[in-house]
Design a binder for these strands. Structure first.
Length: 266
DNA sequence: TTCCATGTTCCGCA
DNA sequence: TTGCGGAACATGGA
C-alpha cells in the first residue's frame, strides 16, 4: 500500500478527521516495531494536546502536536501500515500499534501488521528529510520538471531503480514506479543516460499525473481507471492500452510489470 | 505447505 | 564511487 499516493490519502484522513481534537488517550503497542522515541516522551508529546497540522514528505507522514512548532509525530508505513479514522463504536483494526482517542469519541489508529513501519518524534520535518537524505517530494511547492531533470542528470543505471531511489526523488515505490513507466511508454531497464533532458522533464510530468490520479482514486485499485497498469498487474494479461501483453520480470530484485509492446524503447 | 509481497538497510562485488 | 544483486527483517494471504 504505502507509497506517496497512499500516504497522501492518509494525510488527508488525518487532516479531515483528527485535527483540533483533544487527545484523551494514547494507546501504544509497538510490539517490536521500530520506534525512535521513548514511550514516555511520545506519550508526553501527544497526551492532552491536539494535532494542529498534517504534512507529508515522500512516504513519511508528520502530524504536529499542539502549538509547539517543533513537535511532530512521524509515521512511516513500511509495506503494510495504514492510517484509519475511527468513530465511536468502530472496531479497531488488527495490529494497531498506535491509537489516539479524541474527546468526543473519534480516534485515529495506525495498524502495521508486518512491523516494517516506524514511529518517531521529530523537531522539524524538513530537517528530518535533510538528515535522511530524502530527495524532493513530487507534489511540494517549487518542485518541478527542472528539479527532476537536474537530479537525474548524472545518474547511471536503469530508470526504474532511479525512480525508486528516495535520495533522488522521494515518494515512488515499486508499484507507482511501474505505473509511471507504463504511462510514459518506457521500459523499466532503460538506462537513464539514454534519456534526453526533455524526456526526463516529460517523465516528471507523467509521474505527477499518475500520483494525482492515484490520489483522486483514494489510492484504491478498484477506483483506478481500467487502462492503468495497477488493475492489470498480472503476467500474461492483455495490455489495456495496446495490442501488447503485460509481462512480469524482476528488476532490482523487485517484481516488475510492463507491456512488451508500448514500453519497449526510450 | 510454500511462496510471495506495496519498504528500507546493509554487505559484497564489479 | 556507484549501481546492483542478495539477504534480512515479520507476518498475513494466495
Amino acid at each position: 500500500m504505502p507509497e506517496l499516493p497512499d500516504v497522501e490519502v492518509f494525510r488527508t484522513i488525518a487532516e479531515d478527521e483528527a485535527l483540533n481534537r483533544a487527545i484523551e488517550t494514547v494507546s501504544f503497542r509497538p510490539d517490536g516495531m521500530t520506534v525512535t522515541a521513548a514511550e514516555s516522551t511520545l506519550r508526553d508529546a501527544l497526551l492532552g494536546h491536539t494535532l494542529t497540522a498534517a504534512r507529508r514528505w515522500g512516504k513519511h507522514l508528520f502530524l504536529r502536536s499542539g502549538e509547539d512548532r517543533r513537535r511532530w509525530l512521524r509515521l512511516h508505513f513500511g509495506m503494510t501500515g495504514s492510517l484509519v479514522a475511527l468513530e465511536a463504536g468502530d472496531e479497531q483494526p488488527d495490529n494497531t500499534r498506535l491509537r489516539l482517542d479524541f474527546r468526543g469519541g473519534a480516534a485515529l489508529a495506525f495498524p502495521c501488521p508486518r512491523k516494517f513501519g516506524e514511529i518517531g518524534l521529530v523537531d522539524d520535518p524538513e530537517a528530518f528529510a535533510d538528515e535522511q537524505g530524502l530527495g524532493p517530494d513530487y507534489l511540494h511547492d517549487g518542485v518541478g520538471p527542472a528539479t527532476f531533470r537536474d537530479r537525474l542528470a548524472d545518474r547511471r543505471g536503469g530508470i526504474k531503480s532511479a525512480l525508486m531511489d528516495q535520495e533522488l526523488m522521494a515518494g515512488l515505490g515499486n508499484i507507482y514506479a511501474d505505473e509511471t513507466l507504463f504511462h510514459a511508454g518506457l521500459h523499466p531497464e532503460t538506462q537513464v543516460p539514454e534519456l534526453s533532458g526533455d524526456r526526463l522533464e516529460q517523465l516528471f510530468e507523467t509521474a505527477v499525473s499518475v500520483i494525482r490520479g492515484a490520489v483522486d482514486a483514494r489510492a484504491d485499485v478498484d477506483r483506478m481507471p481500467d487502462d492503468w497498469l495497477l488493475p492489470n498487474r498480472e503476467d500474461g494479461r492483455d495490455c489495456p492500452r495496446c495490442d501488447g501483453t503485460i509481462r512480469k520480470t524482476e528488476v532490482n530484485g523487485r517484481p516488475t510489470f510492463h507491456c512488451d509492446r508500448h514500453q519497449s524503447g526510450t
